[in-house]
C-alpha cells in the first residue's frame, strides 16, 4: 500500500469561449467550479452536482457534458463552450436563444444555459429536429418552471431558423 499522496496541482491549457487559458488547478476542482469561480463565467449553473439535472451542461470539444461530473484537470487541451459564448457582444441573441425568447422557452432561466448548450450540440448534428430528437438530447435536463413544452418548441424552431440561416449563406 502506498503512503498518502499530497495532491499536486495540475497544469491545463484549456480554451474557453475562444480564450486560451494556462492554469494550475487542484485535481478536485470540478469543471463547473472552474468556470463559475476562477473564470467568472457564472452563466453555467449548478443544480444537483450529481449529473441528474443538466443545469451545468457545457460543450467539451463539441459534446454536451455535465460540467459537475468532470474534473478540470482532465481537460488539458480541451475546448469548452459555455452559454456566454452564444450572444454577440452587441446583445444580438444567438438563433437558439432567440427561439427560446420567442417561444417562451424559459421562466426563471436557471435551467436555460444547460438547455441551450444541449440544444447547440443537437443542432450541430441535426438540422430539423423532431420533438423526439429534442427529448433524446435534452431529456436529462430538468426544468421545474416551464413544463418543457415550450422548450421543445423552442429547439425545433431554432432548428428551422438555423437551417434558413445556413441556406441563406449557401
Amino acid at each position: 500500500m502506498s503512503e498518502v499522496v499530497t495532491p499536486e496541482k495540475v497544469r491545463i491549457r484549456i480554451t474557453v469561449n475562444d480564450t486560451a487559458h494556462d492554469l494550475l488547478v487542484e485535481p478536485r476542482t470540478l469543471l463547473a467550479d472552474l468556470l463559475r469561480g476562477e473564470l467568472e463565467l457564472t452563466g453555467t449553473h449548478v443544480g444537483c452536482e450529481q449529473g441528474v439535472c443538466g443545469a451545468c451542461t457545457v460543450l467539451v470539444d463539441g459534446a454536451a457534458t455535465r460540467s459537475c461530473l468532470v474534473f478540470a484537470a482532465q481537460l488539458d487541451g480541451a475546448t469548452v463552450r459555455t452559454v456566454e459564448s452564444l450572444a454577440g457582444a452587441d446583445g444580438t441573441l444567438h438563433p437558439i436563444q432567440q427561439a427560446f425568447h420567442e417561444n417562451h422557452g424559459l421562466q426563471c432561466g436557471f435551467c436555460t444555459p444547460g438547455m441551450l448548450m444541449g440544444a447547440c450540440e443537437l443542432l450541430e448534428r441535426t438540422t430539423a429536429p423532431e420533438p423526439d430528437d429534442v427529448r433524446e438530447a435534452l431529456g436529462g435536463n430538468l426544468c421545474r418552471c416551464t413544463g418543457y413544452q415550450n422548450i421543445v418548441k423552442s429547439v425545433c424552431a431554432a432548428g428551422a431558423a438555423l437551417a434558413t440561416e445556413r441556406n441563406g449563406q449557401a
Binding site: 463559475r36 463565467l41 457564472t42 452563466g43 453555467t44 449553473h45 449548478v46 459555455t82 452559454v83 456566454e84 452564444l86 450572444a87 446583445g91 441573441l93 436563444q97 427560446f100 425568447h101 420567442e102 417562451h104 424559459l106 426563471c108 432561466g109 436557471f110 436555460t112 444555459p113 441551450l116
Partner: peptide
Amino acid sequence: ARKEDPKLLAGRATYVGD
C-alpha cells in the same frame, strides 16, 4: 415577449450564487 429573457438567456443575470 418577456423583457426578462435576454439577460437570462445570455447567462448574464445575477443569481445569488453568482
